[in-house]
Amino acid sequence: MKNLILIGMPGCGKSTIGKLAAMKLGIPFVDVDEYIENKYDAKVSEIFEKKGEKFFRDLESTCIKELSEKTDLVISTGGGSVLREENMINLKANGVIMFIDRSPEDIISDVDIASRPLLAQGSERIYTLYNERINLYTKYCDHHITNNSSIDTVVNTLLLQYIVKK
Rank of each mutant, 00 (worst) to 15 (best):
V30S: 08
I97L: 05
R102H: 06
E132I: 03
I100F: 08
T153C: 09
L20M: 14
G78W: 07
P104S: 04
I5W: 11
N135K: 14
I100L: 15
V155Q: 12
S103L: 09
E132P: 05
T153P: 00
P28A: 02
I27R: 10
E85S: 06
V96L: 02
I75V: 15
V164R: 14
L59Q: 02
V155C: 12
M9I: 02
D41H: 13
Y127A: 00
A120V: 13
S115I: 00
V155F: 11
L118Q: 08
S123V: 02
S68C: 04
I134A: 01
V32S: 10
Q121G: 15
H144A: 01
F56H: 04
S45H: 07
D106S: 15
T62V: 08
I75C: 10
M98S: 14
I100W: 08
H143W: 10
P28Y: 04
E34M: 08
L6R: 01
I36N: 02
N87V: 02
E60L: 05
E85I: 09
F55P: 01
C63N: 09
E37C: 03
H144C: 03
D101T: 01
L20F: 06
I89H: 08
I108R: 13
I126T: 10
I134S: 01
I5H: 08
P104D: 06
D142G: 13
R57E: 07
V32Y: 05
V44C: 02
D110E: 14
